[in-house]
Computed example of a mutant assay.
Amino acid sequence: MKRINKLFESQFLLDPNLHMWVNRFTEDFTVPYHEHDFIEYCYVAEGNGFHHIEQEIFPIHKGQLFVVPIGVAHVFRPVTPARSSKPPVVYNCMIDLHLVAQLSRFQEQRIQEHLSSLGNKNTSYFSVIDRDGAIENLMVQLQREVSINDPGSITMLHSLLNQLIVIVYRRIHTDADAPATKTADFNHVIHFLEQNFNQAITLTELSRYSGWTTRHLQRLFLKHTGQSFHSLLQHLRIQKSCEMLRNSSLKIGLISELVGYRSIDSFNSVFKRNVGLTPSEYRKSSTS
């Protein structure tokens, strides 16, 4: 069944003089699945949970930034309603098309085209990892300037927004600008891992497959994914197990084997640590 999307409109959420707004919001279960008539930069600052976006569900963690174009439906959710969990805390930077047009005048043509694509309802979302804290710093400054509204705040906001747009654009295209052979080779490594995540795969095996040393592979995983090899492998296994728990009636013991865990106790422990619920609790919450 297709979810019904609520439309969040800029006239009710954005400052009409600024044509934007920035908030720091602790996500809960009251915000509906929604799309909006403005562009949104969402930065995960704390906690954990899930990002439901388009037809996908992603575990989220600190340092992720999602760019949500006009017309793309999404919502952030905590792992569980329990107070003991740490819900996601997200900075939301919302800008309307009027401000986009203003900012575009100071950007290069390729970035102008990038901004235009975010408003034409034909572009999917994308995400980047804030490895050096630059994006978080900009979000903090943006939220502060919106809140204080001091003399010069509009000029400062436009400067900060332009920096955010450029930094995110550069992060998106870093791999595209890298030497094609190196990027392609590492993409083969990722593809190999995605196809064999349920095997007893090791970094040493990946080293033999790729021809790179284990130490260099560790650096490449951090550079290209923002995670270590072991964290990414665990993420792939948990993500696949979540899909199986939501969409099948397979026994949990069988699911644990299918995603690469030889011990159901180990699977339960890792799943609870990453998701905040046991596999059976997650299955019950996702089907209720």
Rank of each mutant, 00 (worst) to 15 (best):
Ser117Asn: 09
Ser117Met: 06
Ser117Ala: 15
Ser117Asp: 14
Asn120Cys: 11
Asn120Trp: 03
Lys121Gly: 02
Asn122Asp: 11
Thr123Glu: 12
Thr123Phe: 00
Ser124Ile: 00
Tyr125His: 12
Tyr125Thr: 13
Phe126Asn: 12
Phe126Asp: 08
Ser127Met: 11
Ser127Leu: 09
Ser127Ala: 09
Val128Ser: 10
Val128Gly: 02
Ile129Lys: 15
Asp130Cys: 12
Asp130Gln: 11
Asp132Gln: 11
Gly133Glu: 02
Gly133Ser: 10
Ala134Pro: 00
Ala134Ile: 04
Ala134Glu: 10
Ile135Val: 10
Ile135Ala: 09
Glu136Ser: 11
Asn137His: 12
Leu138Ile: 15
Leu138His: 10
Val140Lys: 14
Gln141Cys: 12
Leu142Met: 11
Gln143Arg: 10
Glu145Tyr: 03
Glu145Val: 06
Val146Arg: 05
Val146Ile: 12
Ser147His: 13
Ile148Met: 03
Asn149Gln: 14
Asp150Val: 14
Asp150Pro: 01
Asp150Tyr: 09
Pro151Tyr: 04
Pro151Asp: 15
Gly152Gln: 10
Ser153Ala: 13
Ile154Pro: 00
Thr155Ser: 09
Met156Ile: 15
Ser159Ile: 01
Ser159Ala: 06
Ser159Gln: 09
Leu160Gly: 08
Leu160His: 06
Asn162Arg: 13
Gln163Thr: 05
Leu164Tyr: 03
Leu164His: 08
Ile165His: 02
Ile165Val: 08
Val166Trp: 03
Val168Thr: 15
Val168Lys: 11
Tyr169Asn: 08
